[in-house]
Design a protein around this nucleic acid. Structure first.
Length: 438
DNA sequence: TGAAATGTTGGGGCG
DNA sequence: ACGCCCCAACATTTC
């Protein structure tokens, strides 16, 4: 049987500028490209109408077409990676598996298992840095400890990038050393237990052009000011190196957003307790009210606070929410409603197309004031003032809450002023008595 | 990447 | 002309 190497696509659904793929193609063995719909992950998704699965499915289908133009194909499997590889080792003469680093706890465990399996079969398992510029241990304080404050991290990150230069970001031509194969079957989205959602994905080129004015326009949810590139970054349909090159030319503010992403990935790695608790443990004593009905109203965009409802409806309808509005709805949930930030985090995890564990967790802890380098707890957003500042003509609100001026629109579920005072009180108590009443 | 409460200043109305 | 008061505008402090 002809020896070959596998390249395993996961969060890097592109041929161009894909580090692990390029490494694999340089070897003498031909490369068989593989994608697995991982049922360990898919079975966790309650809603079978999930835009992310749809997005992955169409990206994978596109990859397959591109590979078929090159006389190869993409082998698409559905199942648990462990079992899939067990089968592939029986079917093919696999010398090595190439893939890109994946950092989240589940991914680490999965890759450890596959590596062990490969070694068991006398094959090798190689992984490469691809989805970030600097990994968890590449930007550290001079004493070798991880940063816990963004600004000094960001400065060091930029310094490291200057030292490194961006020459290494230039892409080389894709070698055509793919395994010669007839087209493999493409499972339909129904085959993997999901539905078509009609998800719309913003084109990357138009988004990149917006970066010129990013700083001026990004805070105004009614204008096309944000990049909407997050979903492409999430699934690797765009390369971080290309994006950083663009950011260096076009917008330092946007570059800072990319650095926030790596900051939170670094935090998650070094401080895994943030996954289910506050970064600062004293904030684990907050007496959340956790009113189920108020939570439901928040989820559905029926709080009676127009900017909050607009944001939640945008999320529910499109799988996306403008970043300024994410901060507003998060402040409202955690402070005005005193609902546990983890509830909001979990809801975003279900709904956001661009959901990324580290950034979502970091963002929620920032808003709740529980995180590293978070907003201080007494910083409570006033939705009315935020609307005056960032949606003064009410365009964004009208788009998502058309019944605003009719009788159908509900009264606010809380009074903004008194709920703000209540939040200050509850947070203060949690921090002063360390939760002795808990 | 906040907002409210409190403090300070200075112009103008007015006796 | 002068002092007093009011209050808007701005600054600082507090949460």
């Amino acid at each position: 049987m002809q020896p070959l190497n596998i390249f395993w696509f996961r969060r890097d659904l592109r041929l161009n500028d894909n580090c692990g793929l390029y490494k694999a193609l340089k070897e003498s063995e031909p490369v068989l490209a593989v994608f697995i719909f991982d049922t360990n992950i898919l079975s966790q998704l309650e809603d079978k109408n999930d835009g992310r699965v749809d997005f992955i499915h169409s990206s994978v289908s596109q990859l397959k077409t591109e590979l078929e133009k090159r006389g190869s194909s993409l082998l698409i499997e559905v199942g648990k990676p462990q079992e899939v590889y067990q089968k592939l080792f029986d079917e093919y003469n696999i010398k090595a598996i190439y893939t890109n680093h994946d950092y989240e706890p589940y991914a680490q465990k999965r890759d450890d298992e596959i590596k062990a399996l490969a070694q068991n079969k006398g094959a090798q398992f190689f992984t490469f840095k691809d989805q970030v510029i600097f990994e968890k241990d590449e930007v550290l304080k001079p004493n070798g400890e991880p940063y816990t404050v963004y600004t000094p991290y960001m400065k060091m990150w930029k310094q490291k990038l200057t030292e490194k230069g961006t020459k290494s970001f230039d892409t080389t031509p894709l070698l055509n050393n793919f395994f010669n194969a007839q087209p493999f079957a493409l499972p339909t989205i129904e085959d993997i237990g999901f539905e078509k959602t009609g998800v719309t994905i913003p084109p990357t080129n138009a988004s990149i052009d917006l970066l010129e004015n990013y700083k001026q326009t990004r805070d105004y949810p009614a204008t096309k000011g944000t990049s909407k590139l997050s979903v492409h970054l999430r699934f690797g349909t765009i390369s971080i190196r290309q994006l950083v090159k663009k950011a260096l030319e076009a917008s330092d503010t946007f570059l800072n957003e990319l650095i926030w992403r790596e900051f939170y990935m670094m935090i998650l790695w070094h401080f895994p307790h943030v996954i289910d608790g506050a970064f600062k443990p004293q904030y684990n004593h907050i007496q959340w009210r956790n009113n189920e009905q108020e939570f439901k109203a928040w989820c559905e965009g029926k709080t009676g606070i127009p900017i909050v409802d607009a944001g939640m409806r945008e999320l529910n309808k499109t799988g996306y929410m403008h970043n300024r509005v994410r901060m507003i709805v998060a402040s409202f949930l955690t402070k005005n409603l005193l609902i546990d930030w983890r509830w909001g985090e979990a809801y975003f995890a279900k709904k956001l197309l661009d959901f990324e564990l580290a950034s979502n967790n970091g963002g929620w802890q920032w808003a709740a004031g529980t995180g590293c380098d978070a907003a201080p707890y007494f910083r409570v957003f006033n939705p009315t003032l935020q609307t005056q500042k960032f949606d003064p003509e009410g365009k964004y609100i009208k788009k998502w809450v058309p019944e605003l001026n009719s009788l159908e629109y509900p009264q606010p579920i809380v009074d903004l002023s008194s709920s703000r005072k209540r939040a200050l009180q509850v947070y203060k108590e949690a921090l002063s008595d360390e939760g002795v009443h808990a």
